[in-house]
Each structure stands twice: as structure tokens, then as C-alpha cells.
């Protein structure tokens, strides 16, 4: 209980500090103005979402290997949390794009590949609702999750080669790419805060999955 409360408080503190820093500490972006501040939220969510999907992949692999229920719980929790963050990215993206590019949506590579990834993980969760037997559901969805995660870089590069309108990668991009030092620091702080939030949601969702399985087992016992 105390551990959960501490994790919760630290996360809230980090997120609030990151929000404060992105509004009051970083300098105003020259061409885009105040709307650019959504970047600290938008891109940091994208990174946290990707980490969550990587954790889901890890859970899937470990389930197939070890066949322990807890890896299945980790897989489904991480997929849901990753989807939540990716949904945030897909919503804040158009909010940012509209004033800057003049359009809500553009079929550029990063938006489109994020959208396809989002669809893949929606399919993962849908698949889970369509298989009754718990062990079979865990195994088959883990295998689909492995295939889906392998597909993510392929989707990314195919769409990137196909067309592009997004700015070139700013963080960890090629030569000439780069952020103003304060922006860089605040961005990494936001990434940290979003990851803390992701871990918090993940651990709570994991607990929920564990409890619901326990309730389900008790129900079955009572019926038998």
C-alpha cells in the first residue's frame, strides 16, 4: 500500500513538474509559438507508448517460454497502457498539426505508422476477447503480439520510404538536428515523467488483471 502511494505521489510530482517546465522554463519556439509546447507531452507520450509495447513483447516472449500466468498479465497490461499513450499521441498530433501545418491530419510516415501500430494492438486486445479458454487465450495472443511487434519497424520503414512530410527526427536525428539545450533537458525530463506515469499505470493495471483472475477462479470454485 505504502509503495503504491509513494509511486503515485512521485509520478504526480514528476508530471506536474514536467508540465510546469514545458510552460514556463523552455523558451518560446520562434516559428510555431506557444503550440510547440505540446511537443513535450506529445513526443514523450510516444516514447512511453513504445516502451510499453516493448514490455508487452517481452511479456509475450516470456509467456511462450515459461508459461506462467503473470507474463500474460504483464502482456495485456502493457498493451493496454501502450494503447492509452498511443491514443494520446494520435489526439495531440492533430491538435499540434492544425495551427502549424493548417491541416488536422496528414498521411505522413510517423502519423501513419503510429496509426497502424495502434490498430495492431487493438487487434491484439480484440483477439483476447474472442478466445474463452484462459491458457489458449494467453498463448495465442502472446504469439500474435510477437508477430505484431516484429512488424512495427517494418511498418515504420515502409511508410517512411513511401512518403514523408514530418520534420526530420529532432532528437537523436542526423547532423544538423538538435534542440536548444533547455528544450532538450525539459524534453528528457518529460520523457522521464511520462515513463513514470506509464510504470504506475502498468503496475495498477497488472494488479487489476491479477485480481480479476482471482475473482474469476473463486467464482468458478463457488459454482462447482
Amino acid at each position: 500500500m505504502a509503495k503504491r502511494a509513494i509511486l503515485g505521489l512521485v509520478t504526480v510530482g514528476l508530471v506536474v513538474t514536467a508540465a510546469f517546465a514545458s510552460f514556463y522554463v523552455v523558451p518560446m519556439e520562434r516559428t510555431m509559438g506557444p503550440i510547440q509546447r505540446i511537443f513535450y507531452f506529445h513526443a514523450a507520450s510516444a516514447w512511453a507508448g513504445m516502451t510499453a509495447f516493448a514490455i508487452c513483447f517481452l511479456g509475450n516472449l516470456l509467456y511462450v517460454w515459461r508459461r506462467q500466468q503473470n507474463w500474460d498479465w504483464l502482456g495485456v497490461s502493457a498493451a493496454e497502457v501502450g494503447l492509452a499513450f498511443t491514443t494520446v499521441v494520435l489526439i495531440t498530433g492533430p491538435i499540434w498539426a492544425h495551427p502549424v501545418w493548417g491541416i488536422w491530419w496528414t498521411w505522413d510516415w510517423r502519423l501513419t505508422s503510429t496509426f497502424v501500430m495502434w490498430l495492431l494492438y487493438i487487434s491484439y486486445l480484440l483477439l483476447r476477447t474472442l478466445i474463452e479458454e484462459p491458457d489458449r487465450r494467453a498463448l495465442l495472443s502472446a504469439l500474435f503480439g510477437i508477430f505484431a511487434f516484429l512488424d512495427v519497424p517494418l511498418v515504420y520503414f515502409s511508410i517512411r520510404w513511401w512518403r514523408t512530410q514530418h520534420p526530420q527526427p529532432v532528437v537523436m536525428g542526423g547532423p544538423g538536428a538538435g534542440l536548444e539545450p533547455t528544450m532538450f533537458k525539459v524534453f528528457f525530463f518529460s520523457v522521464l515523467a511520462m515513463h513514470a506515469l506509464m510504470v504506475l499505470l502498468l503496475s495498477e493495471r497488472y494488479r487489476l488483471e491479477k485480481l480479476s483472475v482471482a475473482v474469476h477462479d473463486l467464482q468458478r470454485e463457488a459454482e462447482a
Binding site: 497502424v116 490498430l119 495492431l120 483477439l127 478466445i131
Partner: peptide, 20 residues
């Protein structure tokens, strides 16, 4: 083949993955 709604499920699993 091992799930419910299989006719709809296969396209749903397959088509986004085949984007590349």
C-alpha cells in the same frame, strides 16, 4: 481457427500487419 468470430478475426489480425 481457434477463436470465435473467426471470419472477421483473420482480416482484422492480418490486414494491418500486411501494410508493409
Amino acid at each position: 481457427a481457434q477463436a470465435r468470430m473467426r471470419e472477421l478475426l483473420l482480416p482484422l489480425l492480418l490486414l494491418p500487419l500486411l501494410t508493409p
